[in-house]
Structure formats: C-alpha cells, structure tokens
Computed example of a mutant assay.
Amino acid sequence: MSGTLRNPTIRSGRSFDLGKMNLRQLWIAYLTYPTILLYFTLIVVSVILSAHFFAGWGATLTSILAVMLVYPVVWYSLHRWILHGQWLYKSRWTASLWKRIHFDHHQDPHLLDVLFGAPATTLPTIGAVTIPVGWLIGGWGAAATAFGAGVTITCIYEFFHCIQHLNYKPKAAWIQRMKAWHVLHHFHDEDGNFGITSYVVDRAFGSFYEEARARPRSPSVFNLGYNLEQAKRYPWVMKLTGSPPRDRPDGARPSTRSASRDAA
C-alpha cells in the first residue's frame, strides 16, 4: 500500500503514516487491521450472548444508553489522569505500558500502529466499566449488551481518531471542528481537549479550548513531560524507545518557552 512509513524507533514492522494516507487508504487499513477485526468479532459474540440471555428490550436499550453516557466520562478520566499522568513512566514495571498506550502516540501522532489501543489493555478496561453496569440493569444479557456497546463505541472512537490524524479535510463542518480541537491537543497544548468525538466532558471540567491563541504553546505537548531530564532519572521508556524523547514533532515550530531557551 502506498503511504507507508517504517519507524523502527517506535515499532518495528509495518506502520502506516496517516499524514500520508487518503480516506480510501484509511478505510482499507482500518477494516483489515487485526485489532479492529478482533473488536468486530467480539461485537458479534456480544450480540449472540445478548440474544441468548435476552433481558428484555427495556433493559437492553437502557444498558446501551447507560454505556453511551458513562463511556465519555471514563475515557476522559483515563486520558487526562492516567495516560497524561507521570507516575506510570516512573516505575520500571509500568514504563512499557505507558510507552505503548500513549507516549508513542504523542511522539508520532500520525503513526497508525500506536494510535489504536492495545487489546490487552483496552478490552479489560471496557469490560470492567461496561459489564457491571449492564449486569446491574438486567443481568448477564444486559451485561453482554453493555460490553458490545462499549466495544462498538471504541471502534467509532478509533475511526474518528484516525480521521483526526489523516491527511484529509472532512466535508462535514462538525467533523472539521472535532479534528481541529484534537489537533490542538497534539500540537499546541496537551493539557486540554481530551475528548475524541465529544468535548462535553472537557467543557464541564474546564479543559476545553477552541483556538490556539487561547493558550500558550506547551513545551511538553510532544513528550508529555518525559523530557531528557526525566529520561535520565527514569530511563526505562528511553531504553525501550532506543532514542531520547523528542520535544516536538518533525516540522513543528518550537514552543515559545523552548524557543526562548534555545535563543539564550
């Protein structure tokens, strides 16, 4: 496939650079990606289990609605306070986890291989959040429905997440806005706009910003605070990466504070 990029400093093997792909190429990559195929399989299994242990239409629809309401809050909380937290990279036991689930994505925001969450961490999280909700509403049938709804929402999130990093301008105005706000999170100030498809929770917690001029550019937008100084104190992520952390994306202009420091 055209538009591929090999980046051995992050992950060996085949990698797709979303910054060089078009929408058609994304659809092909997305619909054939092993993680997405696994999610599709689990959705089918969830539907079968939901039918077998059918809890009634009321409980089934309520469990879906509950997951739709809970999911954005859980995602926001994990994204802001876990993935953007600094405690995971400070332990040799969790450094590789943090590197895989978020650091690599901010170091190379267009790399498809690390944009998708790893099933080993994503699926247990989805299950821990959705299955108890569904079970409380309508037993095992609703629990299967809730889990399937969570995996379905994850697939939707992942596709729109790809769109936000794709070399493509969406035709719909609402997708354009959504993409612009997520780009700000990756290239201007990472301490805001934690949502993917919805920024309602960001607005509620005061972390939403609409334009770059609303905030100064963050010097840690690309390394999430894991700079050279931190890498010397906590070297495990750097050793796994095989190179020092970069402080900005390729081609990006330095942050105001970084530029001032370099000038000095």
Results as ranks from 00 to 15, higher is better:
A204F: 15
D189W: 00
G150A: 08
D202E: 07
N167R: 07
H186N: 13
F159V: 06
F222M: 02
T152G: 12
R203A: 09
P216L: 06
H188W: 14
Y209W: 02
G150E: 09
I175H: 11
E211M: 01
E210G: 01
W181K: 14
Q176M: 12
G206I: 13
W174R: 08
I196A: 15
D202Q: 00
H188T: 10
H185K: 11
S198P: 06
E211A: 03
H188M: 04
S218F: 00
R203S: 09
V183S: 12
V221T: 14
A173N: 13
F208K: 02
V221H: 08
F222H: 08
A149S: 12
V183Y: 10
I153W: 10
H165Y: 12
L184F: 02
H165T: 05
V201L: 10
F208M: 06
S198V: 11
M178A: 10
I175L: 15
V200P: 07
F208A: 12
K179Y: 05
G192S: 02
N193A: 07
I196M: 14
N193F: 07
L224E: 03
P216Y: 00
N193Y: 09
A180C: 15
G192M: 01
C155P: 08
I153R: 09
N227H: 03
F160M: 13
A172E: 11
V200S: 11
K171W: 06
D191Q: 04
R177Q: 10
R213C: 04
F159Q: 05
Y199I: 05
Y209R: 01
I153K: 13
Y168K: 05
A180E: 10
F187T: 15
H182V: 11
A212P: 08
F187R: 10
E211W: 03
N167Y: 12
N193I: 03
A204Q: 13
A180H: 14
F159P: 13
T154C: 10
A212H: 04
E190H: 09
A214Q: 12
P219K: 07
S207N: 10
Y157P: 08
N227K: 00
T152A: 12
V200N: 15
K169D: 12
I175K: 10
A212W: 04
V221I: 08
Y168C: 07
D189G: 03
R213W: 04
A149M: 15
N193C: 07
L224N: 02
A180K: 04
I153H: 15
A180I: 13
D191C: 02
P219T: 09
I156L: 15
L184W: 00
I153D: 14
H185G: 14
S218H: 06
R217P: 01
G206P: 08
T152V: 10
F160K: 05
T152M: 11
K179A: 05
G225F: 00
T197R: 05
S218R: 01
T197E: 08
T152F: 15
H186C: 14
I163T: 14
V221Y: 06
H186Q: 14
R203G: 04
S198T: 14
H165M: 07
G195V: 04
M178G: 11
K169C: 09
R203M: 05
R203P: 01
C162I: 06
S198I: 13
F208Y: 11
N223D: 15
N167H: 15
D189R: 00
A173E: 12
E158L: 10
D189V: 01
M178Y: 04
H185E: 04
A173D: 11
